[in-house]
């Protein structure tokens, strides 16, 4: 299990290859990469603030919960902070399991909890405004699936 919180960009393909190469006898690897999307008003920059210390603790707890709930060989979580631009990767998760269902479900679970239980806050600087991204009720509701 590996949790990385960093400002620098990461190479999702290289990370996935390294994660895959580190496994043995895992029949399924699932990965998800989140990318900064442009917005209608034109996104200049997205700033991600986080709570150093708590961020790592929260991500490690979420990853450990996934390892407990599903039959997983390994979990990788990478989440960036600082200034980001459209089309840059924000975060990725990868799961390794003997079986496809566990790998998919655990990745989905990790994403739902990263959205609203890890202390990150996004601020969008567009050509029209500079606003904190509001949390969505649907993201909160998504946690009830688990």
């Amino acid at each position: 299990m590996r949790v990385i919180v960093q400002e620098d960009a990461f190479d999702g393909g290289a990370e996935l290859n390294a994660f895959t190469a580190a496994q043995s006898n895992m029949g399924a690897i699932v990965s998800f990469t989140g990318i900064v999307r442009d917005v209608a008003a034109g996104l200049k920059q997205m700033d991600i603030e986080h709570y150093p210390g708590m961020t790592e603790r929260a991500l490690e707890q979420i990853a450990a919960d996934a390892m407990t709930r599903w039959d997983l060989g390994d979990v990788l979580v990478i989440h960036r902070y600082g200034p980001l631009h459209p089309d840059e990767p924000i975060m990725m998760v990868a799961t390794a399991s003997k079986h496809r269902k566990d790998a998919f479900e655990a990745a989905d679970f990790l994403m739902d909890f990263l959205k609203s239980r890890a202390p990150f806050w996004k601020k969008e600087q567009t050509f029209a405004s500079n606003d904190w991204v509001a949390s969505k009720q649907e993201d909160e509701d998504a946690l009830k699936r688990w």
């Binding site: 989140g34 709570y51 708590m54 989440h79 924000i90 975060m91 994403m111 990263l114 959205k115 609203s116 239980r117 890890a118 202390p119 990150f120 806050w121 996004k122 904190w132 991204v133 509001a134 949390s135 909160e140």
Partner: peptide, 10 residues
């Protein structure tokens, strides 16, 4: 003790 708005990670 830390105060903040609902989190928006991912």
């Amino acid at each position: 003790v830390a105060f903040f708005p609902p989190m928006t990670g991912g």
